[in-house]
């Protein structure tokens, strides 16, 4: 029976180095998903607030599907479905080839799709909070569509959407735990391995929970910093 501190130490005896690798995987997965989800969510929000009916409908279908499916199911569908699809395509060229989808990429796509569908709702309500006059003002001083969006609307949009987006970031951070089910060595999987080997399940899963809490606390500091820098120079309405 080793002591708790030996188990949680760095090196061959302890498991800290393995869990640190898990933290690296979790954080990089979340950071890689974020820009993908934000960009796609923004596009879907643009579609949903467009004047064109078909575009609105298309955006709403996207949100309905990916907000309604369990994240785990989306992950499996992407992981196995993409595997089958890519396999079929590759078989056309070389019948014996075997393809394996990278679980990191599958996790990124699945989490990104879920993130973007929630994110589009946040952006949509932020769009609605910006009065029509802001666009008209932009056009009347001769800005193009794109310039109005970039110089007038976006800065206000980000300020309004930030609280919702930071919530989504915390949810994303927690959702990354699901990728342990498709074999990616994230925090939870690494602690699971440690728990199985050492038979100290409570210690390691409790430690994993504390790491997630720590990540959440660190993120909230980061979010506060962003909020301060974005809020500066904002007009009170």
């Amino acid at each position: 029976m080793q002591s708790v501190w030996t188990l949680l130490s760095w090196g061959p005896e302890g498991w800290l180095d393995d869990i640190a690798f898990g933290v690296f995987v979790t954080v990089s997965l979340a950071l890689a998903t974020l820009p993908l989800g934000l960009a796609f969510g923004f596009l879907v929000a643009l579609a949903k607030q467009s004047e064109e009916r078909s575009l609105r409908l298309a955006g709403n279908i996207y949100t309905t599907i990916f907000r309604g499916l369990p994240e785990l199911l989306t992950l499996f569908v992407v992981f196995y479905g993409a595997q089958i699809a890519v396999q079929q395509v590759v078989r056309l060229f070389s019948p014996t080839a075997f393809v394996e989808i990278n679980s990191f990429v599958a996790g990124m796509i699945a989490l990104g799709v879920v993130f973007s569908s929630y994110c589009s709702e946040v952006f949509l309500s932020a769009f609605r909070a910006i009065p029509r006059g802001q666009y008209e003002g932009g056009y009347s001083i001769g800005l193009s569509n794109w310039q109005t969006m970039r110089l007038v609307v976006l800065p206000q949009l980000i300020r309004i959407a930030l609280p919702g987006l930071s919530n989504l970031w915390l949810i994303l951070l927690k959702d990354t735990a699901l990728v342990s089910a498709i074999g990616l060595s994230d925090i939870l999987r690494q602690s699971g391995v440690a728990a199985r080997v050492t038979k100290e399940a409570f210690l390691f899963f409790g430690f994993a929970c504390l790491i997630y809490l720590a990540l959440a606390i660190i993120s909230s500091f980061g979010i506060h910093a962003i909020e301060r820098s974005v809020g500066k120079g904002g007009v009170q309405r």
């Binding site: 915390l170 927690k174 959702d175 990354t176 735990a177 699901l178 342990s180 939870l188 699971g192 728990a195 399940a201 409570f202 899963f205 409790g206 994993a208 929970c209 997630y212 809490l213 959440a216 606390i217």
Partner: peptide, 16 residues
């Protein structure tokens, strides 16, 4: 602040 999956593992495996 922690994932539901981690909490479930904590209860199912951890309490063992």
């Amino acid at each position: 602040g922690t994932p539901l999956l981690a909490q479930t593992f904590l209860v199912y495996y951890g309490l063992g």
